[in-house]
Simulated scan of single mutants.
Amino acid sequence: MTGTTRTLAGLSAIALVAACSQDNAPSEKISDVAETVADTVEGSATPTVADGPYAPRNDCREVPGADAFVARFAAAVKARDAQAVAALAAPDVKLDFGGGAGKERLLAMLAAKDAPLWAELDALASLGCGQNEQGGITLPWYAAQAMADVDPGKAMIVTGESVPVRASPSAARAMGTLSWDIVSLKDGLQPGAPFQQIVMSDGKTGFIASDNLRSVLDYRLIASSRDGKWSITSLVKGD
């Protein structure tokens, strides 16, 4: 990978490192681990971020209680502890746009250790934290930011630094690179395809590996403080 790669030292990354030793930790230990991580983060220097306009960062450090909450969430996800994740959710947590809600439904979605939602939560725990207009917090960070003038149904975040853009999927050399930027799918998502054809901000087209693209409408988590207690109020994808 070319260019300068700076370490993302935000809360989510540190929380996940701390949680690595807690793979089999029971729920009662997760809070202690998360509190220790939060204390460490609060005393650390302002983190640097990766290159790119939508690179993960932590804008929630000034929000009372937000750091500790995100640390608890990251630790619970790393431990694959469905009960711990559900304990962080509001009783009426929104889970889709069709009326799905509530802790019991969330627990059902996380019932299996290999349930697809776990991988989605892994991603959320590593993509930074942003303050939202309602006074709460949003994961990933970019979901709380103003987006470029693109169709949300086609907009994708390039997830990585110096990600190759090729003239064709089989091209040996890259025509350029993008770092944590926003692009649009030219002809919609091609499920299962290793590459997607995209349109860049300058109007040029190219191909990027599917593994380096994430829809702006993919899962995002919104949390807010109710009477001093932080809770997940929404965990949805789509629009």
Rank of each mutant, 00 (worst) to 15 (best):
V183Q: 04
I14K: 08
G160Q: 06
W118R: 08
A74Q: 06
P56C: 06
A172C: 00
P164I: 03
L213M: 08
G176E: 04
F207Q: 01
P56D: 02
P194G: 07
I208Y: 00
P56V: 06
T177A: 04
D51K: 12
D218I: 00
T138W: 01
E133M: 07
R80Y: 09
P140N: 11
R214N: 08
R226K: 02
G100F: 08
I30Y: 12
A76W: 13
A223G: 00
G136F: 13
L8A: 09
A45Y: 08
L121C: 00
G153F: 10
V41H: 01
D32C: 00
M200H: 04
V199P: 04
D122G: 07
A144G: 05
S168W: 03
G99D: 04
V183W: 03
A193R: 13
Y142I: 02
K103T: 09
A143Q: 08
N212M: 11
A125D: 07
R6P: 02
G192E: 14
T138P: 04
A172I: 13
T2D: 14
E161D: 10
T46Q: 01
A223P: 04
E62N: 10
L11Y: 10
A90S: 15
D92M: 14
V85H: 00
Y142V: 12
A119P: 03
I14N: 14
V183H: 01
A112C: 02
D59F: 02
F73N: 09
D122M: 03
A50D: 15
R173S: 11
Q83I: 11
K103I: 07
R105S: 08
P53L: 03
L121A: 03
L110Y: 11
V165C: 03
S234C: 00
A79L: 09
D39R: 11
V163M: 01
S210N: 14
L95D: 00
P47H: 04
I208R: 00
A19F: 07
K103W: 01
R61E: 03
E28L: 07
V158N: 05
A123K: 08
G206E: 13
M147N: 12
G3C: 02
F73Y: 12
L213W: 06
G128L: 12
P140L: 04
G238W: 03
A82S: 13
S179R: 02
A25M: 02
D218S: 15
L235F: 00
G102L: 10
M1G: 14
D202Q: 06
V33M: 11
P194H: 08
G100S: 13
S31Q: 15
S31T: 07
L8N: 11
S215D: 01
P194M: 06
V49L: 05
A101Q: 10
L221V: 05
V216W: 07
I182L: 14
E42I: 04
E62T: 15
A18D: 13
Q131P: 10
D122V: 12
T177L: 00
A74F: 05
F73A: 00
G102C: 09
K94A: 09
L127S: 14
V183G: 11
S231I: 01
G102K: 05
P140Q: 03
D92Q: 15
A174D: 15
M175N: 05
A174H: 04
A111N: 10
G135E: 09
S170Q: 07
A84C: 11
E133V: 06
P47N: 10
T48P: 06
Q145W: 03
S179P: 13
D202T: 09
A18E: 13
A50M: 09
D239E: 05
Q131R: 12
K204F: 07
